[in-house]
Design a protein around this nucleic acid. Structure first.
Lengths: 145, 145
DNA sequence: GTGTGAGTTCATGTCGACATGAAGTCAAGT
DNA sequence: ACTTGACTTCATGTCGACATGAACTCACAC
């Protein structure tokens, strides 16, 4: 098993990232690449896998902190609970996205002057409106880099 | 159709939000509630619908800027394209989440010492690793408030 | 042996989405 | 009249996830 080691530049380029991103992820504890004699980072195969996991998880909207839990090799009892909670959150998010998609699709096809006045459209958000309690769904934000 | 007007406090409470959030959304152009004689914000039914849309869209991981496009009542020709692009992005995201869920589920059940060394797990991210080009999928971030 | 280019650390800036606080206005209750 | 509480604007702080820049080291081509 040849665990060929790559430089930070090569590794970053491979994923279309900038080198400072990899350093940042290391700062927050997501990566721990080896170092050569001169103190330079050398990325092995498992580092590549970890980077792939980070990218995939980020694409799913997870924070670096959450991803850290996923990558943490601590198999304590609370880890199971955290991962379970994690999957549940992904499911909640996907459900929200399905609803959001339906909403957007209608806004796309509807010819009403102001969408917010279309009865079909209003019907799609009534649960948010009338669920007289508090609308809870903590979520991320931010845009395209 | 009685368009009962509510105060910012009532409106915020109804959605479990703080008042400054509604003011912020107004600052960035997502809301335009009426004002009473004394300059206080009065939220009507369409404002409530808009808030519901914002919450639902945020839960789907969209930025306020993106949501602004959705709520914009300009029916110009480019709007159609923007909405279409939007739906496509939601689909991409959902696909990523599906993969991410599968990944997490395996991490949940796998007993390997270090997950990144499990062959099944590695197989799940090979497309990210070997898709020799650049891994593109600009996405959001951030955590629970 | 001297650039050149990639690497290093450390400090500070940016951006989105609010949070927090100061200072003042306003209507309603006692 | 006076306090109380919800409202107003405007300024500044926070947090996550980087971006940017300064000052330096290192291996290698020429």
């Amino acid at each position: 098993m040849k665990s060929s080691l790559r430089s930070i530049g090569d590794t970053a380029a491979r994923f279309g990232l900038k080198t400072n991103v990899l350093r940042h992820w290391e700062d927050v504890g997501l990566l721990k690449p080896e170092r050569d004699g001169a103190g330079r980072r050398r990325y092995g195969d498992d580092d590549l896998v970890r980077i792939a996991v980070i990218l995939r998880s980020k694409a799913a909207g997870m924070s670096l902190e959450q991803i850290a839990v996923l990558l943490d090799d601590d198999h304590g009892p609370q880890r199971h609970r955290v991962l379970q909670e994690h999957i549940a959150e992904l499911d909640r998010r996907m459900e929200e996205m399905r609803r959001s998609r339906a909403m957007t699709l209608h806004a796309f096809k509807c010819e009403a002057h102001d969408i917010t006045r279309c009865p079909h459209f209003r019907a799609m958000v009534t649960d948010v409106l009338d669920g007289s309690g508090t609308w809870r769904s903590m979520e991320p934000s931010q845009a395209l880099p």
